[in-house]
Design a protein around this nucleic acid. Structure first.
Length: 462
RNA sequence: GCCGCCAUCGUCUAGUGGUCUAGGACGCAGCGUUCUCAACGCUGAGAUCGGGGGUUCGAAUCCCCCUGGCGGUACCA
């Protein structure tokens, strides 16, 4: 059975890269009617952030990437890793090391000074620490990497990849605090959980041979590997907080739709056979194929995400959109539904809704200078606003009639129609930019419209 | 430094030896529509396919070298 997993570390806010990797893992699992597992890799006790796990769960749920198993916490499996590490020592495939981090640093510094490759000098591999030292508990367990030969594997994205064993360090498997490193835990867990495809970011590519060596040491069959390209900043470096928003919480707060984010992420290093750019998660799953994954690292482009989000906002059923909007505004569902048709095609992100619709619920402040910039003096402007108020007061409400009558008024006043429209727009919305004027008035209502016009009119002297 | 991965418009990409004087999308510019802004439609600018060698009748596509970018090189993941 196909089984994939997403294995984030709770060391900070849920990361866009986690969503990216999760998406591909999810797709592979679903396409093959397999399972998608969530595992929390919380073995680094120093970097643990309280509450981070919950946020990761929330984010994946928000995205709609539901896991079939988990969340499994590595911290619940501590004794298993310890047992496995000792098992390797017993078989002579790993060894205890008592070197202090100070010594390790010193060795590294010397190697670098001599322009050698910085890596563990294998002191304890030659001369193991004494039983007493081991019992004191300050030792780590290291993998005994073969001194010659090579380790290779087939990557679904990149083909066959080979490393020389002499280039591989004797990595720490079990830290002196008794917790496993990533390398040990990932192999123990992926095999234990019967993960069939390890789909992860490219940054793991160079540690994969260590993992293969571990599978060999345990006499286990390695899973299939696929290393996804790394999302990049505009300067091509690995995507990071400093240069790009990376927190999924930010994307949610901004009002990106999960469908749009997932859709955009699918476009990173992958394309539909027919080059369609807007598609659903289901369509992604149905069409997914590793052969279409491009190994080069794509730059994450917020502008294109914005565009795609706008596309999704416009194509979602109105009811569903209104429902989504509830988290981004103080208005209630009924209010949202009334004004939504007027702003929907102007929205790129849900967070913009509040600012764009404020004028319907609260009287805006109006800068009279904007009105005068239209080329009519105070007297003419006051007259126009007053006449409009008078006209509307006795008028049956509705967009076509409002427009028709306002056009007539512009002739009567001697204004260019578009200038008068702009004048009314500013007086009523406080802005030179708004939804279509008469539709806005229709929704605003006669009473409020007349009230606002009168008020602004009264601001000008005769 | 060493090891590995990668290399088509600014960005995301199509392209798997001939249909490519390289197609689409975002962004940008212009035009149209129009009461503003959007949305929408059309047009345009924008890539001698990183460079150099091969292979071949023929290369963006295959091979080699160079260059460049990125990642790894932790008792972090």
């Amino acid at each position: 059975m196909v089984k994939t997993r997403i294995a984030p570390s709770p060391t900070g806010d849920p990361h866009i890269g986690t969503a990216y990797t999760a998406l591909f893992n999810y797709a592979v699992a679903k396409k093959n009617k397999g399972k998608f597992v969530l595992r929390i890799e919380d073995t680094d006790r120093a970097r643990l952030v309280p509450g981070a796990t919950e946020k990761i769960l929330d984010s994946l749920t928000w995205l709609g990437l539901a896991w079939d198993e988990g969340p499994i916490h590595q911290s619940d499996r501590l004794s298993l890793y310890q047992k496995k590490a000792k098992e390797l020592v017993g078989k002579g495939l790993a060894y205890y090391c008592s070197c202090s981090s100070e010594r390790l640093e010193k060795v590294r510094a010397e190697q670098q000074a001599k322009k050698e490759v910085p890596r563990y000098d294998r002191k304890c591999r030659q001369k193991p620490p004494s039983k007493e030292e081991i019992e004191k508990g300050n030792c780590v367990i290291r993998l005994k990497v073969p001194e010659s030969g090579e380790t290779s594997f087939e990557d679904l994205v990149r083909g066959e990849i080979t490393f020389q064993n002499k280039d591989i360090d004797d990595s720490v498997l079990l830290k002196s605090d008794g917790w496993p490193t990533y390398h040990l835990a990932v192999v123990v867990d992926d095999s234990d959980m019967e993960i069939s495809h390890v789909i992860r970011a490219e940054e793991w590519l160079s540690s994969t041979p260590k993992h293969i060596l571990l599978y060999n040491a345990f006499k286990l069959k390695p899973p299939i590997f696929a290393h996804l390209p790394l999302l990049r900043n505009p300067d091509k470096s690995k995507i990071s907080k400093r240069k790009n928003p990376v927190s999924l919480i930010w994307y949610k707060e901004q009002g990106y739709l999960p469908q749009a984010l997932l859709n955009y992420l699918s476009l990173m290093g992958w394309s539909m056979p027919d080059e369609r750019e807007k598609f659903t998660l289901k369509e992604f799953i149905d069409n997914f194929d590793f052969a279409r994954v491009d190994p080069s690292g794509p730059v994450f482009d917020l502008q294109k995400l914005d565009w795609l989000n706008g596309q999704w906002i416009r194509s979602l059923p109105e009811k569903e959109l209104a429902d989504r909007l509830k988290d981004y505004t103080k208005r209630d569902l009924k209010q949202i539904e009334i004004v939504l048709p007027l702003v929907r095609e102007r929205l790129k992100k849900l967070s913009e809704f509040e600012a764009q619709t404020k004028l319907f619920f609260e009287e805006p402040s109006v800068d009279t200078k904007l009105l005068l910039d239209l080329g009519h003096n105070e007297k003419e402007t006051k007259e126009a606003l007053g006449e409009a108020a008078k006209l509307y007061k006795g008028l049956g409400w509705g967009t076509p009639r409002l427009e028709g009558e306002t056009r007539k008024l512009s002739e009567k006043l001697g204004w260019i129609a578009s200038d008068l429209f702009m004048c009314l727009r500013i007086a009523i919305t406080g802005s030179k930019v708004s939804p279509p004027l008469f539709e806005t008035l229709t929704v605003l209502g006669k009473e409020e419209t007349v009230k606002r016009l009168k008020k602004i009119s009264s601001l000008f002297s005769k």
